Computed example of a mutant assay.
Amino acid sequence: MNDQQLLRYSRQILLPQIDIEGQQKLLDSRVLVVGVGGLGSPIALYLAGAGVGRLTLVDPDEVELSNLQRQILHDGNVIGLPKVESARRRLQALNPEVEVRAIAARLEGKGLEAAVAQADVIVDGSDNFATRFALNIACVRIGRPLVSGAAIRMEGQVAVFDSRQPDGACYHCLFREDEKSEEESCSQTGVLAPLLGIIGSVQAMEALKLLLGIGQSLHNRLLLLDGLNMRWREIRIHQDPQCPICNGPQKKWRALA
């Protein structure tokens, strides 16, 4: 690291759990952030500020006026611009040393697997179950830790799914794909802006801990936030022995790869 980097990251380097060696780990790390909206905004800002070497941002949407209440990466000057391009400009202004790759598309299949394989940690800031389930499958197949978050109304949740661990539950162990269930979104039910900042910040913290190999992650734990009454609850997640993803063909495929 040069003198400017030592100064930029000095407050992190002071931490005994990080030091210069840990900061260099972050500079050499690669993170995939799926979704740069309400959750992806604080996630991407904190990861870029912390000095994660390469961020790959994935989001097919454009910036709309209704986003600005909560999606703090964007502002009124970029309405109509792809969200990933708006995010790339903001992050490069915050930290020009971070390499930011912007993908303005919904990744699927082999494209999604390739993006997951090129990252050390995956952070899910998406807003729909289809993306979450597809991302979970890719992370299990490739063997990458997934930091998952969601927020709606005044309620949020965060968890880490790490298929590298023998007892590692996956997203499908917790939530089942049900074609008959109706998916809620904040455009239908609403969301209080700071809630996304809280959940996204926890996701960024978990991603940094995984990259550094420090502390105890939210592996096999689900944090639930009642923002209205500001109460946290923790639920243990157990691997489902009948899960078709982490105990099925996806995990076997990875073992043979």
Rank of each mutant, 00 (worst) to 15 (best):
210 L>P: 15
223 L>A: 10
211 L>I: 08
220 N>F: 12
207 A>M: 14
241 P>G: 03
216 Q>N: 10
243 C>D: 08
239 Q>Y: 01
198 I>R: 07
199 I>L: 08
241 P>H: 03
214 I>L: 03
221 R>N: 12
202 V>A: 04
227 G>M: 13
214 I>S: 03
230 M>Q: 04
215 G>D: 12
228 L>I: 11
243 C>A: 05
226 D>P: 11
238 H>Y: 05
220 N>P: 13
211 L>C: 03
222 L>V: 00
234 E>C: 09
190 G>E: 04
213 G>K: 00
191 V>I: 08
234 E>W: 09
206 E>G: 10
194 P>Y: 14
235 I>L: 14
213 G>W: 00
241 P>L: 02
221 R>M: 10
210 L>M: 15
202 V>Y: 07
209 K>H: 09
203 Q>L: 11
195 L>C: 03
234 E>R: 15
213 G>P: 00
211 L>S: 04
194 P>T: 12
196 L>H: 02
208 L>P: 09
204 A>M: 06
211 L>P: 07
242 Q>P: 05
222 L>W: 00
205 M>C: 08
207 A>P: 15
230 M>C: 02
216 Q>G: 03
196 L>K: 03
206 E>N: 14
203 Q>E: 15
214 I>V: 13
223 L>K: 13
192 L>P: 04
193 A>Y: 05
238 H>T: 02
210 L>E: 15
203 Q>N: 13
236 R>Y: 07
220 N>Q: 10
215 G>K: 13
237 I>A: 00
212 L>F: 12
193 A>V: 02
198 I>N: 07
210 L>S: 15
212 L>Y: 11
205 M>S: 11
213 G>C: 00
221 R>Q: 15
231 R>T: 04
190 G>F: 01
217 S>K: 12
199 I>V: 14
199 I>F: 02
229 N>K: 11
238 H>K: 03
190 G>D: 05
206 E>M: 14
234 E>D: 08
233 R>V: 03
220 N>T: 10
190 G>N: 04
220 N>I: 08
241 P>K: 03
192 L>K: 06
194 P>D: 13
204 A>W: 03
192 L>E: 06
239 Q>F: 01
242 Q>F: 10
217 S>W: 10
221 R>W: 10
225 L>R: 02
219 H>S: 03
195 L>Y: 06
